[in-house]
C-alpha cells in the first residue's frame, strides 16, 4: 500500500481545442516529425509539470505511461507505406511508444527510469509504478488519440499521510480533479478529497 500526494495534474479528455497552440507555446516552437499521440503526451505531461511548478524532473523520479491504443495510427500509416516500399524512418520510429518517453526525457532535462505499459487499466499502471517508485516520485500518464483524444497526467510524490480511509476510486477517475491524495493497495484505488486532514509533511499544495 502506498499513498501519494498529487502535486500536479492534467485531466484532458478531450484536450482543449487550443492544445496544439498551447504545446507550441510550452515548447517554444511547433513540434516537428512526431505523431499526434506523442504530441498529446507532451502536451499533457508539460501541462501537468507546469501545474506542479516543476520544469525538470529529479533524477530519481520515474515516468510511467499507459495507453489503450497507443501508436495505432502511426502503425497504420507505416503498414500502408510498407505495401510497396520501406516506411519513412521517422514514421517507423513513431510506431514505438517508447519514443514518447525519450521525447519527455529530453524536454524535461532528465535521465531515468521510464516505462510504457500497454492496454491495461490506470490503477494497474499505478500499481507497477508504485512498486518501483523512489523519493522523486512519479510522472504518470495515460494518453490515447482516438475519440477526440485524451491526455491525463499526475505528478505524484510518495508520502503525505492522510486521515481516514478515503473513498473508493474508479480507475477512470484516477486523473479527475477533486482529490489531493491517492492510495494504491493491490489493484484497489482510494482517493482523499480536498480538505482531508494531512498529517504528514509532504502534503499537496
Amino acid at each position: 500500500m502506498k499513498t501519494f500526494a498529487i502535486r500536479g495534474r492534467c485531466a484532458a479528455t478531450p484536450p482543449p481545442q487550443s492544445w496544439r497552440e498551447e504545446l507550441a507555446r510550452m515548447l517554444g516552437a511547433r513540434p516537428r516529425r512526431i505523431g499526434t499521440w506523442a504530441e498529446l503526451g507532451l502536451y499533457g505531461a508539460l501541462t501537468c509539470m507546469a501545474e506542479a511548478g516543476e520544469q525538470a524532473l529529479p533524477p530519481d523520479a520515474q515516468i510511467w505511461l499507459g495507453s489503450e491504443r497507443g501508436t495505432y495510427a502511426a502503425t497504420a500509416t507505416v503498414m500502408a507505406q510498407m505495401q510497396d516500399d520501406l516506411p519513412m524512418p521517422l514514421a517507423f520510429l513513431q510506431t514505438q511508444p517508447s519514443q514518447l518517453l525519450a521525447l519527455l526525457a529530453a524536454q524535461l532535462g532528465w535521465n531515468g527510469h521510464a516505462c510504457f505499459v500497454a492496454g491495461t487499466e490506470p490503477q494497474a499502471l499505478l500499481r507497477l509504478a508504485a512498486a518501483q517508485c523512489g523519493a522523486g516520485g512519479l510522472l504518470l500518464g495515460w494518453v490515447d488519440e482516438m475519440q477526440g483524444g485524451a491526455t491525463n497526467w499526475l505528478r505524484l510524490l510518495p508520502g503525505g499521510e492522510v486521515a481516514g480511509e478515503g473513498v473508493a476510486l474508479a480507475a477512470d477517475q484516477l486523473f479527475a480533479p477533486g482529490h489531493t491524495h491517492v492510495r494504491i493497495d493491490g489493484m484497489s484505488l482510494r482517493a482523499f478529497p480536498s480538505g482531508a486532514a494531512i498529517l504528514g509533511e509532504q502534503g499537496a499544495r
Binding site: 495505432y72 505499459v117 500497454a118 491495461t120
Partner: peptide, 25 residues
C-alpha cells in the same frame, strides 16, 4: 491493432488467471 486484445489473447492461450501486463519499451 489493439493492445488489450493481444494481451487477452496471450493470457487465454496460457489459461492465465492472474494479472497481465504488456510492457513495450
Amino acid at each position: 491493432m489493439d493492445y488489450r486484445a493481444f494481451a487477452d489473447k496471450v493470457a487465454t492461450w496460457l489459461g492465465w488467471t492472474g494479472p497481465v501486463y504488456a510492457i513495450s519499451t
